[in-house]
Design a protein around this nucleic acid. Structure first.
Lengths: 249, 249
DNA sequence: AATTGTGATTTGGTATACCAATTTTGTCTT
DNA sequence: AAGACAAAATTGGTATACCAAATCACAATT
């Protein structure tokens, strides 16, 4: 039986064209507001049909790099650097990311403590129960972990904080370094400690103790950091460039 | 002479098609991984050519909502809700945003204090000098303000913190509420106080006093918040829905 | 000389036709 | 009946042709 596989599909052509156009823009001296070459010009330049160039333009337009105006032309809307600065953050190192999460999530916990609702507290309790029960199933545990952290952010009733926390959490997805660490975490059971950390955070939230919650969340992420540090120490070479600025507190 | 105008251009059709498709997805009971109707089906459904549907698909693909596979079909990749949660953050209220910035940027200041370089301190001093000199020119002052805050984030040497700070700062762009407030700020000169706030932050950073820097930055954003609160109070009705959870610290 | 109007040109917008990869179907072989 | 192979149908990929809006050039008008 042939398995339905389709991972290594050749990338869609319009993406290649789009990237090529980006390179052209990078090489040129165009400034924001300048007019780009027309679709037809690019089509001839790359030796493809205008349709493809058009699709590439749509890609750049959605990325907010350009703006296209009928009958007039397409124009640079943002600098290339400002965009890729945001894009390339995704492959940041685990420690750098955890450092940031420690700073921000402890503040979020402190921020949530005074305003958290009974309903949210119950929700956190439920998540903890799931964590206790499903400790073995890695996927469940992970999902619950995420729920726990983000639910606290939601309890602040501040959209921006929730968005920031979500963004930071999802940053680890797609980073190969995290996957390696993650595989090693599955064996050993640091989950027990982390579960205990979560309990301590919830206790402080129940007491509506802002500084207590801050401390508890700080300590939790400190423990995670230390764990990852040990694990990476065991089999270190992969982490060149990721090890730096240790906690300074 | 005819001015080159082109603001009220009818929105590109592919966007309408794309939004329509999103609605169709929302109405349906499709789950992640499910297969979407084919391009041809949508083309007939909406009474347009397949080209347009295809462009709409590209839009959805770049938004990471779907994944398209040649010869097979297109598939739901993410839930609609998770995406729009991120997208709609852009029009968040000024107070909600400032609240988040107060939490996060004060932590960033504390984080920067122990590790800030002499070079970065000098850079901050230079920015302050510019702020003092160009106090009157609103654009310059604004730019310097941004530089000051983001330079501190950069001084943490943590990419994620810098990215987060940048993201928060730029959130106010495009929000009409900010523009109204901003117009009113230009008249009065709260800039003096804010400039003084900045000085106090820099003093603490020089002393490498983490908690001092945290406090100084906190107070600075507290002052900004209070100022905006007064201004919005003067001419209040616009702010329905933006006034809520006042600082709880 | 400045302005206006009109037609040609440029540019993006849309539709149709055909190509290639994938999946499905059905038949043949074992 | 099971498996393998091939033909056919499905689906996205690409190219070409034509349409409509915006712009530009230039002459006619004032």
């Amino acid at each position: 039986m042939k398995v339905t596989k389709n991972p290594p599909m050749a990338e869609r052509l319009y993406r290649e064209i789009g990237e090529s156009i980006k390179q052209e823009i990078a090489k040129s001296t165009m400034k924001i507001g300048d007019k780009l070459p027309t679709e037809r010009v690019y089509a001839e330049l790359f030796g493809v049909s205008r349709t493809l160039v058009r699709e590439a333009f749509i890609m750049l337009e959605i990325e907010e790099l350009i703006e296209v105006r009928k009958g007039s032309g397409s124009y640079l809307k943002n600098s290339l650097s400002s965009l890729q600065a945001i894009a390339q953050v995704s492959d940041v190192g685990p420690f750098e990311l955890l450092q940031a999460r420690q700073e921000i999530e402890s503040s979020i916990a402190a921020c949530a403590a005074p305003v958290i609702t009974k309903h949210d507290l119950q929700k956190l309790q439920d998540i903890l129960d799931i964590e206790s029960a499903e400790l073995e199933i890695v996927e469940k545990a992970n999902s619950a972990d995420r729920d726990f952290h983000l639910s606290i952010a939601q309890a602040t009733q501040n959209t921006v904080l929730l968005d920031t926390a979500t963004r930071l959490w999802d940053m680890k997805d797609g980073n190969p370094m995290w996957k390696k660490l993650h595989a090693r975490i599955q064996d050993t059971s640091y989950h027990d400690q982390w579960l205990d950390d979560h309990r301590k955070v919830l206790v402080q939230l129940r007491k509506r103790n802002a500084e207590g919650a801050r401390q508890a969340m700080w300590q939790h992420l400190e423990n995670v950091k230390q764990t990852l540090f040990k694990l990476s120490d065991t089999e270190a070479p992969d982490f060149d460039g990721y090890l730096f600025a240790q906690p300074h507190n």
